[in-house]
Simulated scan of single mutants.
Amino acid sequence: MGAGISTDAIDTSLVRRLIAAQFPQWADLPVARVESAGTANAMFRLGEDMAVRLPRVEGAAGDVEKEQQWLPRLAPSLPVAVPVPLVKGMPDGDYPWPWAVYRWLNGETPVAGHIADPGQLAKDLAEFVAALRRIDPEGGPDSYRSEPLAARDTTTRAAIGELREVVDADAATAVWEAALGAPAWPGPAVWIHADLQPGNVLIADGRLSAVIDFGCLGLGDPAVDLIAAWYVLPAQARGVFRSALERDDAAWERGRGWALSIALDELRYYRETNPVMATIARRVIHGVLNDADHDANPAPDPHHGHGHGG
């Protein structure tokens, strides 16, 4: 990942200096920090209509160029707004990496337990994922999460071991092994966002209004984007999401494995340093294991023999 810059070092005065030096036409606009639990970038509002995003770690600096290249091409095919960059800023003095200015996108990030219409959000997310997948992948880069699940086996099992005191290790191992045993994606790699977490989704007027932070964007297994089922949606809306995408059992198992693996890694990394990220990771792990338990031990159907197919 490389060296990082502390949150305190990337402040409004730094942003004002960068803007004044490189884009003086905006030098008089107000600058305000946008609070976020994200760790890769710092975000600031510039005036009413723009946002400035500066990488905080070297590994995120390359994402600026990727978004500059690909988001303008992908945006016209997507059903909701994405952060199309206006200009790219350059390293300058005490700030070492490229950075960018985007149009401001209105909306709020979803909060667990406070989503007004989870079913509608599930349909909107499914529409976004499906639209992204349909875009011609020619020339696209590999996603940050383009590897097969099996490549994550060692680190995922290590995380389960380290978190044994806070995670049901036997249940997590069973879910992980079921995901590893699922048939692999048989098709060519497709466009995936690969990080559909609450902080990267915006809702306005009860509907999905934007998807942001495409740092993990690229080509990979479409099952990776199924992590939204556990990261963003409550349990009662996951079936709506799955049905709208027509995902088969194998894809769902792989998606659940991805959600578990990512959340375990995040909990291990952030549990002492980032309470928001750690809380989300715990909720995802609980949801994944609870879903798997229900799948293995379904409740008896009081209307057995009168159900519907699907």
Rank of each mutant, 00 (worst) to 15 (best):
Y231W: 14
P275E: 09
P234F: 13
Q22F: 04
R73V: 10
A150W: 03
D225T: 10
H304T: 11
E108A: 13
L46R: 08
L78V: 05
P30C: 02
T154Y: 15
F214Y: 14
S243Q: 13
G307V: 07
G257W: 12
A235M: 07
L71N: 02
G287Y: 05
G161A: 11
A159P: 08
R282F: 10
I5V: 04
L260D: 01
G113Q: 10
M1W: 02
T156G: 01
G2F: 11
R238E: 07
P275K: 09
R152W: 12
E272G: 13
G257F: 07
P183C: 06
D153F: 08
Y95W: 06
A237L: 12
W99Y: 01
P110I: 09
A126Y: 05
I212M: 11
E266G: 06
S261W: 01
I10R: 07
N290M: 13
G309M: 13
M43P: 10
L217G: 02
D205A: 14
V284N: 08
S13I: 04
S143G: 14
Y269E: 14
T154G: 06
P55S: 04
S146H: 15
P98I: 01
M277L: 07
A223G: 04
L132Q: 14
A21R: 04
G2I: 01
G161S: 08
D205G: 09
K123F: 06
V31G: 08
G62M: 02
A210Q: 04
A130H: 15
V211K: 12
M50K: 11
